[in-house]
Nucleic acid binder design. Structure first.
Lengths: 225, 225
DNA sequence: TTCGGTTTTCAGCCAATGTTCAGCTTCGAT
DNA sequence: ATCGAAGCTGAACATTGGCTGAAAACCGAA
């Protein structure tokens, strides 16, 4: 799967690239609208991630140009928090979805997958570890056949853990992937959410699927604890 | 795998080179930012390790220049303990990760591997020596099919030994690789940890996989003792 | 605006881990 | 057989990392 990222803030570009590559996408980055336009003509991408504010050609135009020449590659627009983007305008120019900065990897990847699913149906992702079941698409979580209600954050943390089941993931990795990459609060928050998850998905079932590896991080037992 | 190390403190540069070569990387070292820039243009590296404070072009600039010309080789930034690096700034210029001095080889190598894994997913490393099994990714250790719980330090020491199974490794090497560069405590600590490991991975199984080579160091039997 | 749920901060606590140390044992050279 | 160096060991001590409950801040819906 090839993704083109057009984004001038290097930091965001690098972060997005990292996140997507970790997911197994092949990523090209363009730092200006002009480069982006050129790359999009040269290559066939499966998705284009497009910032609005760009040197050279801006995101709206670039997207409009694509559609103009009959290129219907799914486009995901990125936009700063306030104003800047008029949702209507984005969708008018032919974008398929948009995302407000700052956002977390988990959300970004989810949106991209959603776009891909539209163009290439099939393969809906669900994760399992033992009798633990997590479906990001429908936002469902179950242990055996007991439904478990999770808040958005709790869900993201669990999703990240289960995607890496059996591996140790450090608190920092969790923080970087689940929170905005701009997040600079107390890393203790990860511990707090681990606790919430344990209370919801482990303790009632007398399980211990979330293990602490002191000095290294946490690990979700691949077999469900 | 080719690594470029740009670092002006000769001592650190030499240490890093040694450590990485021992890991099987091909290492080029540049002592100034200018040299580093030139080398990075001439050759295709898999990772670049970049100090911030450099004569000639500094680390930030060098990294920014790379990205500017569309080179997205993973960059790991090195930084002195306090101030100097603003994490945000490092990531702004397009670095993929950063590491605060002093750091240990094991950590450095782990970070580099993590970066490589992002660009080339899959291949998770596990080590074996006879019936002894060590998996750094999941932080698991097993003798036969008995799980063994190790602390972070113990694990690092064992990881180092098993990566060099069959070879004699000196106490100093262990110290330099597992502890921080700057560690200046009692070298006896290595003996202490060897003891801990023997108690956990050998004695219960009536094995003697960690052998003492008097006057030279230790050796983990390649056949598992 | 108020309210309830969610997210985040905070501070104290506890236990696991890391480190030092001093005395002991083993080894090998003489 | 003796001696010194190297290594072993158990215990004491210091430090850190992680846990937890509660309070504060935040946010969106009514």
């Amino acid at each position: 799967m090839r993704v083109l990222v057009v984004e001038d803030e290097k930091r965001v570009a690098a972060a997005v690239r990292r996140g997507l590559e970790a997911e197994g996408f092949a990523v090209d980055v363009a730092l200006t609208g002009t480069d982006g336009e050129w790359l999009s003509k040269e290559n066939a991408y499966d998705v284009i991630v497009l910032d609005i504010m760009l040197p050279g050609i801006n995101g709206y135009r670039l997207c409009a140009n694509l559609r103009e020449r009959g290129d219907w590659t799914p486009v995901l627009m990125l936009t700063a928090k306030d104003g800047e983007l008029d949702e209507a305008e984005a969708l008018d120019t032919g974008a398929d979805d948009y995302l407000t900065k700052p956002f977390s990897f988990v959300v970004l990847v989810a949106r991209i997958r959603a776009l891909l699913r539209r163009s290439t149906p099939s393969q809906q992702l669900v994760y399992e570890a033992g009798d633990l079941y997590v479906n990001p698409t429908s936002h469902e979580c179950r242990r055996g056949d007991v439904d478990i209600a999770l808040t958005a954050r709790e869900f993201s943390v669990l999703e990240f853990l289960i995607r890496h089941k059996g591996e140790v993931v450090s608190k920092l990795e969790i923080l970087e992937n689940v929170w905005d990459f701009a997040f600079d609060g107390d890393p203790n928050i990860v511990e707090v959410y681990i606790r919430h998850l344990r209370v919801k998905i482990d303790e009632p079932f007398h399980k211990a699927s979330i293990q602490t590896i002191r000095g290294a991080g946490y690990r979700l037992a691949a077999s469900g604890g």
